[in-house]
Design a binder for these strands. Structure first.
Length: 490
DNA sequence: CGGTGTTTACATGTGA
DNA sequence: TCACATGTAAACACCG
């Protein structure tokens, strides 16, 4: 059954924008079951996390974990079994996208890392990542076995398929997951490698891309390290100035390129196939694509449901897409227009050891988006539309283009404050793709700054911009508990 | 010297 | 075809 629980699926989709991810999720009545990770796993993971923290962020970088014995095809023999069990277990304790209600303890990632399991493990290299699951297009064994789109891809454990998220999105995710207002580069690395197996085994050049993104992307602000803050490099955070652009609704999510296979693993597969070890392996790699039937079904579903045609179901992606602001008439270099002014800070380095707060960052980088907490915050009116105060005015006179859509520089938000009516207007407009998805994306985006400037946050949920239906829809999608929470609030 | 950060150049995919 | 978004690679500088 491709479209289980249609209505519920829809509401979740529109809220979180992960329509495609949700397509094949088989929801139970409690899509985000609590306490789903076994004690043993918790203990193991906690130990792994402790070890990771003790060893520092660099050593935590599991990108180093690539084992040459990947060339061994033993993992292939075990793959389906492993994945099957992994799939089962992850179904058991997965809240999609890794939200694990009521627990900060990360799950055991390596337990589900085929590259580490089926293939020989890299000893003593546990990744203390929490369970970060992005149910999506394909899982290798199923493809091999059935030649069509299986239930989902667990990017956390699947080293073969590159996550369909842009680097900016990944950075944003890491920032969100850190639950801190700022995050170090190494923490970003760590979170990514912890939560996306692909990057653990990939060529580390992706880190260059991360840095490139941080530097050039206006969404990211470098926060200088304080004098008394030991550690290397600065901190990074999301520029709230661009968060509010979401409210304009003037963005369009971009369709991401098709699934990519880890080239390193592809090479290994090819080599093995070449040596006659596993001809089937090469075929398997070639078959790693979404079948046309599945694509068609997905497309039809999106069309039928009015889902955004840009299927990329990433909430943070939506966030980031709103951030690519370029000056008009420019060529490609405006895609990453450079920040001007005081945002950039001078670098300050320190000892190689992680500063205390960095370790805290790492420890908080459990890879989980605490949706429950987030929604709790939302329900309690704790989420803000900006970083604790009036939104900063846009410091440029130039018109802005967001994903090809013209945005008047703050005329819609007099005084720099994005008024709720903007949201309402865009909600009313059939031309603007602004729905609960955007709403939640905005909500989601704002969460990292909920820790700062605590005292000066507008209560966006108290505004009239959120329909009760939306809330109920959301609540219903997330389970009765939340639903009743909403009900009681109303 | 390694990690971090900036900048430039180019390639590629996508949508208008 | 073009503009744009994104990815990749590389050179370079800074700093502890």
């Amino acid at each position: 059954m491709l479209f289980p629980c249609h209505s519920r699926l829809l509401s979740v989709k529109t809220v979180f924008g992960w329509e495609r991810s949700m397509l094949s999720m088989s929801f139970t009545d409690d899509p985000w079951p609590e306490g789903s990770v076994g004690l043993e796993e918790e203990v193991v993971t906690a130990a792994a996390q402790a070890e990771c923290l003790d060893s520092g962020s660099v050593e935590c970088n599991s990108a180093e974990n690539l084992d040459d014995s990947l060339t061994s095809l033993q993992w292939l023999q075990e793959f389906s079994i492993l994945n099957a069990s992994s799939s089962q277990s992850t179904h058991q304790h997965s809240h999609f996208f890794g939200s694990r209600v009521g627990s900060d303890a990360p799950a055991s990632p390596l337990a589900g890392d085929p590259a580490s399991m089926g293939m020989p493990l890299t000893p003593g290299k546990p990744t203390a990542a929490s369970f970060y699951r992005v149910p999506s297009l394909s899982a290798l064994p199923s493809l091999v076995a059935h030649g069509h789109c299986p239930d989902e891809v667990d990017y956390k454990t699947n080293p073969h398929i590159k996550p369909p998220y842009s680097y900016a999105t990944l950075i944003c995710m890491a920032m969100q997951a850190s639950k801190k207002t700022k995050i170090t580069l190494s923490c970003i690395y760590k979170w990514i490698t912890d939560n996306f197996c692909y990057f653990r085994h990939a060529d580390p050049t992706w880190q260059n891309s991360i840095r490139h993104n941080l530097s050039l992307n206006k969404c990211f602000i470098k926060v200088p390290r304080q004098k008394d803050e030991p550690g290397k490099g600065g901190f990074w955070k999301i520029d709230p100035q661009y968060a509010e652009r979401l409210l304009s609704g003037a963005y369009k999510k971009r369709r991401m390129p098709p699934v990519q296979i880890n080239p390193a693993l592809q090479n290994r597969i090819r080599m093995n196939a070449h040596t006659g070890q596993a001809v089937a392996t090469a075929g398997m790699a070639r078959s790693l694509c979404v079948s046309p039937e599945s694509q068609q079904l997905l497309k039809e579903f999106e069309e039928a449901t009015g889902a955004d045609q840009n299927w990329d179901p990433r909430l943070t992606e939506a966030t980031m897409f709103s951030c690519w602001v370029s000056g008009k008439g420019g060529k490609r270099k405006q895609a990453y227009s450079h920040r001007v002014g005081g945002s950039k800070a001078t670098r300050r380095s320190s000892s190689p050891l992680l500063a205390m707060d960095e370790q805290e960052d790492l420890s908080s980088l459990k890879g989980n988006f605490d949706w429950d907490a987030l929604l709790d915050s939302a329900l309690n009116g704790e989420l803000s539309l900006n970083e604790g105060g009036p939104l900063s005015p846009i410091p440029r006179d130039e018109d802005l283009m967001v994903r090809g859509t013209h945005i008047s520089p703050l005329e819609a938000a007099p005084g720099g404050v994005v008024e709720s009516h903007v949201l309402m207007e865009t909600q009313r407009s059939s031309e603007v793709d602004f729905d609960e998805e955007t709403f939640l994306a905005t909500t989601f985006l704002q969460s990292p700054w909920s820790e700062v400037d605590e005292g000066n946050r507008p209560d966006f949920l108290c505004s009239s911009t959120v329909s009760i239906d939306q809330l109920f829809d959301l609540g219903d999608s997330l389970g009765g508990d939340l639903s009743s929470k909403i009900e009681s609030l109303l």
